[in-house]
Amino acid sequence: MKARTYTVRIDRNRCKGCELCISVCPRQVLELSGEINPRGYHFTRAANPSSCIGCANCSDMCPDTAIELREEMNRHA
């Protein structure tokens, strides 16, 4: 049996915390971190990565190309 999991990687240095990714995520995967990046912005983080369905709404929407999205195929016994 194959299970698909998705990895959302957010480049915290590119992110400006505009929250557009958060606004278009259908599964509430993302949230704004309380931390601040070197340029003074709160940045997005994947709070619920296991909910991700890999729709790419967030990465398409991101004006700062801060999001990388991968699909992983895990084989289970």
């Binding site: 890999g54 790419a56 990465s59 190309t65 999205l69 991968r70 699909e71 992983e72 195929m73 084989r75």
Partner: peptide
């Protein structure tokens, strides 16, 4: 086994 859906 990875597929890149989006990257810079």
């Amino acid at each position: 086994t990875d597929r890149i859906i989006y990257r810079r």
